[in-house]
């Protein structure tokens, strides 16, 4: 085994075979199997993004749905939200826009919202759909999952349980006739199970996005990859809002806002280095 792994480094030394594309200086850019300058003139950025990730050019309605997911679900210009707040903090300290956006995007890979519920919830929906299609009992599947993991990503929501984004997104899906898939129907059925079991966990927007895209054949990882930058629309106004105000004044904290719970005041005694 050791010999073969050494060989793999030698194989890739100054050698990177690829089918993803390349820049041909002064000539052209290949983007997977297409020409960036010739084949995308009538395409949207969403088309390019989805094609780059999945390798197949999406139908116009798929790109339109994706764009609406980005707009409706994750473009809240509210600096109280944790990722946006990081951007506002970057603005108030006069850091750069790219640093604000980059780090706020990284922070969006969170556990209570954002990318982790997205990808885990999507896998749960696809797996549950498969199990139900194979004759599994939905009640049993849901309760076993809950027993094992204590929560279902994509169900329940911090701060408030009602998710105001669901109706607008479903209206778009209806308009595009993309609201008839099995995964989307399953979300409602899972909610019904949780209601009957008095679990008080409503599906949040992440489940609906995951279901709509799973119905279009997106894998959990493709869903994750295609929405990674979706918070951008909310992040930048928060950064700019702080930049436009005096420096340092974004939600200032006085010393009294620290609720100390640690060791009592003590003095250093003979610390040996």
């Amino acid at each position: 085994m050791m010999e073969s792994t050494r060989n793999s480094l030698a194989y890739f030394d100054n050698h990177w075979p690829t089918n993803k594309g390349a820049w041909f200086p002064g000539e052209a850019v290949r983007y997977r199997e297409m020409s960036l300058f010739d084949d995308f003139r009538d395409k949207s950025w969403m088309d390019l993004l989805i094609y780059g990730i999945r390798g197949t050019m999406p139908q116009p309605e798929v790109s339109r749905l994706m764009e609406q997911i980005w707009i409706i679900c994750t473009s809240y210009p509210d600096p109280r939200l944790w990722n946006n707040r990081v951007a506002a903090l970057a603005g108030t300290t006069r850091s750069t826009g790219a640093l604000a956006l980059g780090v706020a995007t990284a922070v969006s890979e969170a556990s209570i919202y954002g990318r982790r519920p997205d990808i885990i919830g999507c896998e749960f929906l696809i797996s549950t759909c498969d199990q139900v299609a194979a004759g599994g009992e939905l009640d049993v599947i849901v309760m076993e999952y809950l027993k094992k993991h204590r929560s279902i990503p994509g169900f329940g929501r911090p701060i408030i349980s009602r998710d105001e984004r669901i109706e607008p997104l479903l209206a778009v899906a209806r308009e595009l006739e993309l609201d008839r898939g099995d995964h989307l129907a399953l979300v409602k059925r899972i909610e019904d199970v949780l209601d009957r079991k008095r679990m008080r966990m409503k599906a949040n927007i992440s489940s609906y996005c995951a279901a709509l895209l799973a119905d279009l054949g997106f894998s959990p990882r493709e869903f994750y990859n295609t929405v990674l930058l979706s918070f951008t629309g909310g992040i930048m106004p928060c950064y700019l809002d702080a930049v436009e105000k005096p420096e340092g004044v974004f939600f200032p904290l006085s010393c009294s806002k620290i609720q100390y719970q640690g060791a009592g005041i003590r003095r250093l005694e003979n610390v040996k280095k």
């Binding site: 100054n14 050698h15 990177w16 075979p17 690829t18 089918n19 390349a22 041909f24 200086p25 000539e27 052209a28 290949r30 997977r32 199997e33």
Partner: peptide, 21 residues
């Protein structure tokens, strides 16, 4: 810059462009 390290695996056009470069 790894100028000549990128190796196309796709179609003939791609490989032709790579050779030109």
């Amino acid at each position: 810059f790894f100028g000549t390290a990128l190796k196309p695996m796709a179609d003939a056009d791609y490989q032709s462009l790579m050779k030109t470069t």
